[in-house]
Design a protein around this nucleic acid. Structure first.
Lengths: 126, 126
DNA sequence: ACCCGTGCTACGGATTCCGTAGCGATATGA
DNA sequence: TCATATCGCTACGGAATCCGTAGCACGGGT
């Protein structure tokens, strides 16, 4: 019937994984600028535009979306005055980034370069 | 010439930041599935398809791209037999994820829900 | 009445991600 | 030798996300 040779079944092997919290965290933490926002807020509150400034001038659309997700996760909050700040949970999460910072420093000393920009999608002539 | 009222200059304030290693790490680590790949490799080597399986059946295109970046960063390598495995640096980086795991467990116990799927782009009526 | 700064949104175009199909190489068995 | 199976990995079209710019509504200062 089928033209293919082998289904190569890759799915169907996770029938009822309970979706551990770590999976959820790795998911929303692994979105663009999420880690960076936590890192930039580690020293104290920052206003929206100040935060945007520090994140390589990320577009306000994405920044606002990340901040909303981080607020829903309960790690950052917007205080009446002074801008965005880490909550207690957020500070605990930010503390996890300190070992990462140390690792990055040693990693940088070993001459590791940042993986360079991905290949541009081959565009066909218009 | 411009019709705007105020430039609201958000750029132009980072003239010569030396691009610390932590920034580079937060960049390539904050891409989709990068953290998850490190997490799934923490217990030992995994073949390409086995790794794909564990990462919610991520598409092979993205998985291969992440693996390439992680190899260029020197945290993952493909051994002759057995599939992908963390390097020494990679294991040190994976160790950073353990405190994150503990944080996530407590975070999950406090009833935090994963920030739900983003809103669909508001499409105006046709 | 301005001027300035706040958080935040609209929107079109560029980039990235996903889902499926399949290739070349290698291994194993009949 | 031929068939089958699995390996890492690629092609490609469509969907989702991200970016860059412009600007709104509100409030405080002068």
């Amino acid at each position: 019937m089928s033209a293919t040779r082998t289904p190569r079944t890759v799915r169907a092997s996770r029938p009822s994984r309970p979706t551990r919290p770590i999976m959820a965290v790795l998911d929303w933490l692994g979105r663009r600028w999420a880690l960076r926002v936590l890192w930039e807020l580690r020293d104290g509150a920052l206003a929206f535009r100040a935060l945007q400034e520090r994140c390589d001038a990320v577009s306000p659309t994405v920044l606002n979306e990340r901040l909303r997700e981080l607020r829903e996760a309960g790690v950052v909050e917007l205080q009446a005055v002074g801008g965005y700040v880490l909550t207690t949970d957020g500070q605990a999460l930010g503390a996890v980034l300190l070992p990462l910072h140390r690792w990055a420093e040693q990693w940088g000393r070993r001459g590791r370069a940042r993986p360079e920009a991905r290949r541009v999608r081959t565009r066909r002539a218009p």
